[in-house]
Nucleic acid binder design. Structure first.
Ligand SMILES: [Zn+2]
Ligand SMILES: [Zn+2]
Ligand SMILES: [Zn+2]
Ligand SMILES: [Zn+2]
Ligand SMILES: [Zn+2]
Ligand SMILES: [Zn+2]
Length: 527
DNA sequence: GAGTTTGAAACT
DNA sequence: CAGTTTCAAACTC
């Protein structure tokens, strides 16, 4: 915080270092990376990069992320972008932030406060496209969703901080802030985009417009996000993205976003604008951002090219302590192994080595994001379902695959997110289930009673004619593999045959229950 | 803090 | 896809 005490120091112009032309030329990820740059990221980029912005001095000025640039349009240095048809900006407030909870527990004392998190996100046309493809929620009214259109905002903040030569060309999307309580509740959650969908209580979310509210004496506007689904956990973040006109015709630049900064307090980042040259073509918003955009539309920019705006964020936006630092040593913080990257954050105050997840490596970062998205379009979406787009609210979207932790340690993403394992988890010997005292509750995570206790059938099963249709080949395969895993574990541990049988039968019971529950779930959905 | 364990992510 | 390796965090001591 200290370092951001001076607002004036946070002014950021478009003086971001630009990448060399060679760096800007290739857009395709794999082929032809800029010299010296490893696009595939499979190797290591040479070390020695500044660890980042975060450390003090002027460098510390921005926590902001670097960002992306947007290109709207078909040309530009990054031809590989399949740009969407442009449309008016409609960036929604992300109702469901993707949370990254992984860190909370041990960090409570470290000053990391999820609720402070904030981030600015931007998205490129490509990202828009991807988002569009994965966000059915888009039909919702943008206003209801809290979409913000910069062009609907005053041309500049009361303080004149925003100097957008073309007001209409700028869009901002914000991320709601978690209520402090909620954020703090993250204890134990882990970080990687695990989004807890547990608490669905009403929450007020505060959103702040970049360069606007922060400076203003007005309080952030609040929006009830209950309808958005689950609040995320650790994120209180504000996500803002700005589209800035780029110097390249037809291209837009997105200003960085930065996450994890508490609104109104703390240091503030100086956002760095993407290098003009680069900015023009790509937008590498970190994944998470992705999840933010629930709309299919992408911003449209005027053909003109306004000068790079000078944007100043209030120090209040940033909090150097708001995020748990990573300690990556080999990934350059450009793979999903890095929680910062996975959460769409720029490393700041991290302990990583040879970090490329910073503004100095926009190009590499952008490439890395693209690679991740190519591999998995959902890579930056919350891992915990929010009840939309077919996801089950409060359930890990992919389920965990724990083998030895019993899903009772933070190694387990379900446990970390403070949710019970579900039928889609492929864990073995799972103990992450409701152990409430009532007999009925003495079920495994998958709804089956433990072997060493009486079998209790849940009410839902007792009262219904459990349909047996709906068992898929996948169910059978999963069951078989789980039983085999149990047998192997028993063998590995030197258990007696009786013990092994017990383990296997117990696992089988869980499998069956999961299947049945899954069927019920589907049934209820249909109903 | 060093060393081990763990399971997701990445790779083949 | 499945099997293996890599990775960084969680955990243990
Ligand atoms: Zn990292
Ligand atoms: Zn980091
Ligand atoms: Zn880093
Ligand atoms: Zn688990
Ligand atoms: Zn699980
Ligand atoms: Zn489990």
């Amino acid at each position: 915080m200290e370092r951001y005490s001076e607002p004036d120091q946070c002014i950021m112009h478009s003086d971001v270092p630009m990448l060399s032309p060679s760096q800007c030329r290739g857009s395709q990820v794999s082929p032809d990376p800029p010299s010296g740059v490893e696009t595939g990221l499979s190797g290591q980029i040479e070390p020695g990069s500044p660890h980042s912005v975060e450390e003090g001095g002027a460098g510390g000025r921005f926590h902001g992320v670097p960002q992306p640039t947007f290109s709207q349009f078909t040309t530009g240095p990054f031809p590989d972008f399949p740009f969407l048809q442009s449309s008016p900006f409609q960036f929604p407030l992300d109702p469901l932030p993707r949370l990254a909870t992984r860190y909370s527990v041990g960090n409570v004392g470290t000053g990391w406060t999820p609720e402070k998190a904030g981030h600015y996100g931007m998205m490129s046309a490509e990202l828009c496209s991807a988002v569009a493809s994965i966000t059915p929620d888009s039909e919702e009214n943008s206003e209801e969703k809290g979409f913000l259109r910069q062009d609907l905002l005053p041309e500049r903040s009361p303080q004149g901080i925003m100097d957008m030569s073309q007001p209409g060309s700028m869009a901002v999307f914000l991320k709601p802030l978690d209520p402090p309580g909620e954020s703090m509740a993250v204890h134990g959650a882990t970080a990687r985009q695990i989004l807890s969908g547990i608490d669905s209580g009403q929450q007020m979310v505060q959103s702040v417009l970049p360069g606007y509210m922060p400076f203003s004496s007005e309080p952030p506007f609040q929006m009830d996000i209950t309808e958005f689904g689950t609040p995320f956990r650790n994120v209180s973040a504000i996500q803002m993205g700005k589209m800035l006109p780029s110097t390249v015709p037809g291209l837009c630049t997105v200003l960085p976003h930065s996450y994890l900064a508490p609104p109104l307090i703390g240091p503030m980042p100086t956002l760095f604008a993407p290098p003009n040259s680069l900015s023009s073509g790509y937008n590498f918003l970190p994944g998470p951002y992705f999840s933010q955009f629930q709309q299919t539309s992408c911003p449209v920019y005027p053909d003109s090219q306004p000068k790079m705006p000078t944007i100043r964020f209030s120090p209040a936006y940033w909090d150097s302590k708001s995020r748990k630092p990573c300690s990556c040593t080999k990934s350059q913080c450009l793979k999903l192994y890095c929680d910062c990257f996975a959460n769409g954050d720029i490393c700041s105050n991290c302990k990583c080595i040879n970090c490329y997840n910073n503004k100095e490596h926009e190009y590499e970062r952008y490439q890395a994001i693209k690679i991740c998205l190519d591999r998995n379009p959902e890579a930056f979406r919350p891992k915990i379902g929010n009840g939309k787009r077919g996801e089950v609210k409060g359930r890990h979207n992919k389920g965990c695959n724990c083998k030895r932790s019993g899903c009772l340690k933070n190694y387990c993403e379900c446990y970390e997110a403070k949710i019970m394992c579900s039928s889609i988890c492929k864990c073995v010997s799972c103990r992450n289930y409701d152990e409430s005292p009532e007999p009925q509750a003495m079920m495994s995570a998958h709804g089956v009673a433990l072997l060493d206790s009486s079998y209790y059938i849940t009410a839902e099963f007792q009262n219904n004619n459990c349909p047996l249709v709906g068992i898929t080949l996948s169910d059978v395969e999963t069951t078989c593999s789980r039983l085999l895993a149990q047998a192997e574990e028993a063998e590995r541990e030197g258990y007696t045959e009786t013990q092994a049988e017990k383990m296997i039968l117990q696992e089988f019971g869980q499998c069956l229950t999961q299947i049945v529950q899954s069927i019920f779930r589907c049934g209820s959905l249909q109903a």
